[in-house]
Amino acid sequence: MAVSVRIPTILRTYTAGESEVGADGTTLAEVLDDLERHHGGIRARVLDDEGGLRRFVNVYVGNDDVRFLDGLQTPTPDGTQISIIPAVAGG
């Protein structure tokens, strides 16, 4: 697997409880497509109906929020760590 994706607690129902899963793809869009193939339903939690990144879920490639990189076209070279960080409000 080319990249690893950290899955937050709230989305682990899609990954059978796994906190980190592997995926293939040279851009974030391709990685999300690959994730969807193996963990059906998860892409819709990250992307909205128009296919854009949801504004209450942040996706980090390495240490950076992709909203400030190239969004879904952000390159994901082999070994990249991707993190999905959803807004939570508990206190």
Binding site: I10, R54, R55, V57, P86, A87, A89, G91
Partner: peptide, 17 residues
């Protein structure tokens, strides 16, 4: 960090989750 809140029902509260 989070420009918009999630739509209601999408993210459970601690009382729910």
């Amino acid at each position: 960090l989070y420009p918009e809140p999630p739509p209601p029902g999408m993210v459970p509260s601690c009382a729910e989750g």
